[in-house]
Design a protein around this nucleic acid. Sequence first.
RNA 1: UGACCCAUAGUAUAAGGGUAGUACAACAGAUUUUGGUUCUGUAUGUCUAGGUUCGAAUCCUAGUGGGUCAACCA
Length: 555
Amino acid sequence: MAEATEKSLNFIEQIIENDLESGKYDGRVLTRFPPEPNGYLHIGHAKSICLNFGAAQKYGGQTNLRFDDTNPVTEDTEYVESIKNDVQWLGFNWANEFYASDYFEQLYEFAKKLINKGLAYVDDSTSEEMAAMKGTPTEPGINSPYRNRTIEENIALFEKMKNGEFAEGTHVLRAKIDMTSTNMLMRDPIIYRIKFAKHHRTGDKWCIYPMYDFAHGQSDSIEGITHSICTLEFVPHRELYDWCIDNLEIFPSKQYEFARLNLTYTVMSKRKLLQLVNEGHVSGWDDPRMPTISGLRRRGYTPEAIRDFCDRIGVAKRDNLISVGLLEFCIREQLNKIAARVMAVLDPLKVVITNYPEGETEILTTENNPEDPDSGTRNVPFSREIYIEKDDFLENPPKKYFRLAPGQMVRLKSAYIVRCDEVIKDENGEVVELHCSYIENSKSGQDTSGISVKGTIHWVSIANALQAEVRLYDRLFKVEDPGNEEGDFKDYINNESLQTITAYVEPSLKEATVGTRYQFLRKGYFSLDKDSTDTQLVFNRTVGLKDTWAKETGK
RNA sequence: UGACCCAUAGUAUAAGGGUAGUACAACAGAUUUUGGUUCUGUAUGUCUAGGUUCGAAUCCUAGUGGGUCAACCA
C-alpha cells in the first residue's frame, strides 16, 4: 500500500539517487539556490527553490543561498533582502549565505592560472569587432589578432585592467578555446570585463568583474556543490562550465538542467516584470496581481499552497505552460481547510423583513468553519433590515434557480427562512429593495417549520455591518501566453484586472489583522491588506470559490 | 539551413524492454443550512515511418514538430 501511494522520482532525484548509490560524493548532497539580486523572486523561482532545497532535504543534504552578484550595474541590496525574506517565507533554511563576490579574489587568481596555462588572453578589440569575428551559429568565427599574446604580456595587461589603468570597454579577458566550435559559448568567451561601478558589497574595490560563466561554476566548485541545478537555457553553458572546472583542476561540481515554469495569463521574466513595475502597470513588485512571491503573499497565498503547487507540476526537461487554475486549486484546497468563514455582501440589495420587529437585534450563532470542528462558533447580529447579494435575487428566475425571486423562499444562512413578498423599483425600473417576511419558527438549529428550501444565501445586518474596501483581482493579461504573442507583451494587459468596490461585512471583522485569511461565504477567499487602517478595512480577493452555478448559466 | 535539448489524454507528469497510471481541467450523478466542501462514476493519450526483440512509450535510425544558441546580462 505504501508503495502504491509513493511518489515517483523526478529525473534530478534519480540522478542524486544514482550518485548516492555509486558513492560519487561520499553520500554528500549539497545544492545551491543562486539568484541574481536584480529583481524580486517569482513563482518560477519558487519551483527552483523547492527543487533545490527539497532535493537536498530529501537526501539528508543542505542548500546554500548564493547571490550571483557579478554585475554591479543592475544589482542592489534591496533585492538581497527581499530574496532572503521570500525564501524564508516559503519555509526553507539555507546552510550558508554566500555571494559570488565573496570569491572575487579567488576568481582573479583562477583567471591568472588560466593565463599562465596559455588558456586566456587579453583582447583589445571593440565589442563590435569581437561580434564580427565571432561568426554565427552556422558559420565559424575567426581568431582575434590579440589571441597569441605571450603569457607575460597577458599577465601584465590583466594586471593593468585590475588596477584601473584602462577605460571601460577597451579590454577584456577571454578564454582561449575554439573560435570554430559549434557552441557559440566556446568561441573564446569573455571571462572578465572592466566596469567602474560601485558594487553593493565590495564597493569600489574592483573595477574588473567576472562574467557569469567564469563565476558560477567556480563558485559551485569552491563551495563543493554536488548538484548544480539550473534551467534549460543554460544547457549550452554546461560545456564551458566543465571546461573551466577541468582546466582549473578544481572540485567537479555538475550542472543539471530542468525546464522553467511558465504560467498561463502572466509573464515570468524579471525583465518584463521590472517593466510592469517601472511603467506603473502595477503598484509594485508586491502588487497582488504579480506572479512574484511577494505579490502572491499579499494576495493571500500561503507558502504551503505554493509548495504544494511546485510539487504537483513536476520537474522535467520539456517546455511547459501550466494552467494558473492549478495554482488556484492549490490555494483553495488549503484555504478551505483553514480559513474562517464570514459573511460579506459585495454588491448589496436592501431587504426589509416586514414582519420582524423594528429596532430589535437578535444575536445568532454560526460556525467558523464547517471543515474544522475545532474552529468554534461566533455571534452575528440579525435585524429587520439586511443586505443580500444583488445576484441572489432575480425577478424572472430561470429553472433551478434556488435563490430569491418573487414568492420564492430561501434560507438566510444561520438565520431564518424568508419569502419575497414585494419588489420595490426606482423610476428606471431598477430593483432597489425587497420586502420579505420571515418564517418565525424556522430559526437555524431550531427549525420546526417543516419547510425545506433549496437555497441558502448570506447576508449582513445593515445597522451592524462594517464598510470595507474590497479589491477584486483578475488575470493581469488577456491572453494565455502574453510573452509569446505577436508584438509587445504589454499590448495584452487586461485593463480590468483590478476592480475596487465597497462591501458590507459582518461586525466580527473589526478585529481582523493584516494577512488574516477568510472565506467570504459563497464568494471566495480574502485576506486583509496592509493598506488597512483603524478606520478602513481593505481586503484582497485571493481567489474566488468554484462556481458551478455561474458555469451552468454561462453555457 | 549548423549544433544542442525536447516530444505520453485539454494541461502537466509517471511507467528504467512485460497490464499506459496519477493530478488538475471536463462531463454525469449523490450528499450539502456555502450552487463551496465531500463522495461515486465517465470520456479522452504514447508525433510519423522504419528497425532490433517473443514483446517497444521505453533501445536504434531517419523524418516531422517545438525550443535554445550569434549580451563586455545572469
